[in-house]
Design a protein around this nucleic acid. Sequence first.
DNA 1: TGAATTCCAACTAGTTTAGTCGGAAATATT
DNA 2: AATATTTCCGACTAAACTAGTTGGAATTCA
Lengths: 149, 149
Amino acid sequence: MKFSTKGRYGLKAMFDLATHHGNGPITLKNIAQRQDISEHYLEQLIATLRRAELVKSVRGAQGGYMLNHPPEEITVGEIIRSLEGPVGPADCVIDADSDECRNQESCVTRLVWARIQESVNDVIDSTTLADMLEDQERINNKKNYMFYI
Amino acid sequence: MKFSTKGRYGLKAMFDLATHHGNGPITLKNIAQRQDISEHYLEQLIATLRRAELVKSVRGAQGGYMLNHPPEEITVGEIIRSLEGPVGPADCVIDADSDECRNQESCVTRLVWARIQESVNDVIDSTTLADMLEDQERINNKKNYMFYI
DNA sequence: TGAATTCCAACTAGTTTAGTCGGAAATATT
DNA sequence: AATATTTCCGACTAAACTAGTTGGAATTCA
């Protein structure tokens, strides 16, 4: 029930881009170093994010990557789904026409998976990169407060 | 972000046992046939469930398996965790002392994983096998109603 | 031109998944 | 006592997936 490094690194990278949003292109190298991710591996992930039009790139020297939309308009759900595919605990609730379950209509187990899926979707679709930036602010304020008392 | 067949088959098998609760031991063969699962594979899963004391077994001819507690007292969470291990989208929220995240305290990404984990736990820990039996009743009633109109 | 950087495709070691296989031990039935 | 049924146990395995690595081409800035 874990996400793979695709989703986990991908969200980290996108959050990194969000913190630098508006500052021009950020190189993969910088993101990879800050987030402690293999640069070449991250390259693959960000290629996916680019194809999903969540980031845009500038090629050549002084190039790099930027968010393709403001942080308020990018959800965690979009990021994760672009990298991991549709989210859900079992195929029968992921693919509408999965043939795994012979009796989709009357399968009680499926109801449980559907509830899990719904609750995960609620979280990831209601959280934007802007929300994460706010969380970061709160954490920083708290840390400073702790430091000064 | 899917569960493996361990958790998925395991819940199906446990629900099967719940529907036959009180009727004496049920053979693995029967469960496997009804739920369309490889008998030998299910054997491994039910061994785990037995060690977790969620089912008890009766050996020998006319033997089989039974729930070790009434359906009201067995949660989906217990079943899934016994088979899949602790649930969560990333190690940093699964193992308390994961060394994956260098800055656990101030990691915003981790907050997102924690919210996902919490919402999944809410669902699986608040659903018992008895709840699933009730769901089954509701589905059956609805089907009969649809049939007679 | 040279350095920095993105873009692209192929390869790979290790792990996990979803089983299979063969047989030993226990118990009810005949 | 013999037999059939059933759980219990441990080892094996093909295929897929994960988390990368490698090598180089294309683009752009200085």
